[in-house]
């Protein structure tokens, strides 16, 4: 089963968030599974049209996902999904 982990920045809003195994064969399915466990978290990562937010990145076993619009990148059993904020700020 794939695992997912998150930037620690999200723990401010979801204090119990931690690395975990999740079902799902695409990035989108994995995020749906996470949303069921942490209601509301998807809105932090995706906009209301379901696209990856501009300043959020998702890495799939070390590589940036390709499909930021519909999140259809395939996730294998041994993959790690890493949700990370892009660098920006001031």
């Amino acid at each position: 089963m794939p695992t997912i982990r998150f930037t620690t920045a999200l723990q401010r809003f979801f204090p119990t968030l931690k690395e975990q195994e999740v079902a799902g064969r695409t990035v989108g399915e994995v995020l749906e599974e996470v949303e069921a466990r942490y209601p509301g978290i998807k809105d932090y990562v995706l906009d209301e049209q379901g696209r990856l937010r501009q300043h959020v990145n998702i890495f799939l076993s070390g590589e940036l996902i390709e499909d930021k619009e519909t999140l259809q990148d395939k996730v294998g059993d041994n993959d790690e999904v890493y949700v990370f904020q892009a660098l920006s700020g001031g």
């Binding site: 920045a9 809105d43 937010r53 300043h55 959020v56």
Partner: peptide, 8 residues
């Protein structure tokens, strides 16, 4: 207006 996480 989160820089990364959208509007709340």
């Amino acid at each position: 207006a989160h820089r990364h996480w959208g509007q709340k």
